[in-house]
Simulated scan of single mutants.
Amino acid sequence: MKKSSWLFMLILMMSTMMTLSSNNWMSMWIGLEMNMMSFMPIILKKVNKSSSEAAMIYFLIQTMSSALFMMMILIKAISINMSDYIMNNAITLSLLIKLGAAPFHYWLPKIMSNMNWKKSMILMTWQKLAPLMMIYNSGSSTIINLSTMCCIIIGSIGGMNQTSLRKLMSYSSINHMGWMMILIKYINLWMMYLMLYSIIMFMVTYMFSYYNIYYMNQLSMIYMNNTEKISFFFMMLSLGGLPPFIGFLPKWITMQTMMMEKEYFMMFIMIMFSLITLMFYTRIMMNMFMTFNSSTKWSFTKPNKYFNMLNIIMNLSLPLIMIMNIM
């Protein structure tokens, strides 16, 4: 990575930390703007048609949401007669647009389809942290509940029949966003969910980037040994939240929390649509396991056995956590 890229990555992290540590809306807005302006050069690291398009879409969406957010802050500052309910909902609305949550999600798959896996991983994980914290501080519940339902439904249905793995992962991210937003009133729970999701997504995107895989049909054209196939299999099932893999832990905690709050209908919807996400994760694995894998003699990609073993151990660590809790 070039020195300039390290500089922009440092500004990206510092701007997010600034937003998280701020105690007023104006300084949070400044942190978001710094975050946007540092992420755009990262998108434009290799200037071509696709990266320019992704940067332009990202800039327009983020600017529109920031303008709405700033307008609500100014209205609140000059004490115009407007109910706090409307203002909090408008602030939350602007943050949902910035986050790419449904039904304001259309820009997210479009941008991700024009970026590589490293940039997509930053967009799906780190870039969620500051807007989610601000949504937590806004205290609006009605619009969050509606957006949560849309994220879970659209994130599951949108991933069906996708041949682009980047678009599929973007819809998967939207679905997981719904699970995080249902926990938004419990700060320690949604942050734990985001942390575990980020670790799993790092492993998934690392493997896709390592083999330079961007489309579903490429999975049947690469050679993987048995350890790598098992590692990839565990990653996909963990991302789908299937027990006994570690990805089930945040969903398990979410379901327990919702049962304590007696939100049975919402929990039923979330579980049912999670089965749809498991279906398209299984489609990814079927291309790898059930078709004939061909490899070329000119392939120089070597398996990373240490990463694969670490991945298998981490994804199977949930039973160990349960045993330790019982003891």
Rank of each mutant, 00 (worst) to 15 (best):
residue 295 S to Y: 09
residue 317 S to Q: 01
residue 227 T to G: 06
residue 170 S to W: 07
residue 152 I to V: 02
residue 281 Y to H: 05
residue 49 K to W: 06
residue 211 Y to R: 13
residue 185 K to R: 11
residue 288 M to D: 05
residue 208 F to R: 04
residue 28 M to W: 12
residue 241 G to P: 13
residue 156 S to E: 05
residue 78 I to Q: 07
residue 208 F to D: 03
residue 9 M to Q: 13
residue 326 I to D: 12
residue 305 K to N: 05
residue 205 T to W: 06
residue 222 I to Y: 15
residue 14 M to S: 11
residue 258 M to P: 14
residue 323 I to D: 02
residue 318 L to R: 10
residue 293 N to S: 04
residue 291 T to K: 15
residue 303 P to L: 14
residue 145 N to D: 04
residue 177 M to H: 00
residue 37 M to V: 09
residue 316 L to A: 01
residue 236 M to D: 00
residue 155 G to T: 04
residue 184 I to F: 13
residue 113 S to M: 11
residue 26 M to G: 04
residue 228 E to C: 09
residue 251 K to F: 05
residue 168 L to K: 02
residue 274 S to H: 08
residue 66 S to P: 01
residue 218 Q to W: 13
residue 27 S to C: 14
residue 287 N to S: 08
residue 264 Y to C: 07
residue 108 L to S: 04
residue 105 H to L: 02
residue 27 S to F: 14
residue 79 S to P: 04
residue 224 M to P: 13
residue 218 Q to F: 04
residue 72 M to Y: 05
residue 161 N to M: 10
residue 100 G to Y: 05
residue 6 W to L: 13
residue 240 G to P: 15
residue 195 M to H: 11
residue 102 A to H: 12
residue 211 Y to E: 07
residue 294 S to V: 09
residue 196 L to I: 00
residue 23 N to T: 03
residue 48 N to W: 01
residue 191 M to H: 07
residue 279 M to L: 02
residue 282 T to N: 09
residue 190 W to H: 03
residue 21 S to V: 12
residue 296 T to L: 06
residue 190 W to G: 00
residue 312 I to M: 15
residue 174 I to H: 02
residue 118 K to N: 06
residue 313 I to P: 07
residue 188 N to H: 01
residue 296 T to P: 05
residue 70 M to R: 15
residue 289 F to W: 14
residue 79 S to A: 02
residue 223 Y to D: 12
residue 112 M to L: 15
residue 254 T to V: 11
residue 205 T to A: 08
residue 132 L to D: 15
residue 99 L to C: 00
residue 111 I to T: 14
residue 235 M to G: 03
residue 13 M to E: 06
residue 202 F to S: 06
residue 161 N to Q: 10
residue 190 W to Y: 05
residue 231 S to Y: 14
residue 28 M to K: 14
residue 85 Y to M: 00
residue 29 W to R: 14
residue 217 N to M: 08
residue 268 F to N: 10
residue 32 L to W: 00
residue 238 S to D: 11
residue 240 G to M: 13
residue 290 M to G: 13
residue 327 M to P: 03
residue 47 V to A: 11
residue 148 T to N: 01
residue 318 L to G: 00
residue 96 L to I: 10
residue 2 K to C: 09
residue 14 M to F: 11
residue 247 G to F: 12
residue 43 I to L: 03
residue 245 F to I: 07
residue 76 K to Q: 10
residue 162 Q to S: 00
residue 83 S to I: 10
residue 221 M to S: 12
residue 294 S to W: 06
residue 85 Y to K: 03
residue 214 Y to W: 15
residue 139 G to N: 03
residue 213 I to K: 00
residue 273 F to D: 02
residue 289 F to P: 15
residue 114 N to Y: 10
residue 260 M to G: 04
residue 322 M to V: 15
residue 213 I to N: 00
residue 282 T to G: 12
residue 8 F to D: 08
residue 66 S to C: 01
residue 183 L to M: 06
residue 319 P to R: 09
residue 261 E to H: 10
residue 80 I to C: 01
residue 54 A to C: 10
residue 57 I to S: 08
residue 118 K to R: 12
residue 197 Y to P: 12
residue 155 G to K: 04
residue 173 S to I: 04
residue 216 M to Y: 14
residue 298 W to K: 07
residue 69 F to C: 15
residue 113 S to I: 09
residue 115 M to A: 02
residue 312 I to D: 13
residue 60 L to A: 08
residue 256 Q to T: 10
residue 61 I to P: 00
residue 276 I to G: 10
residue 291 T to S: 12
residue 6 W to C: 05
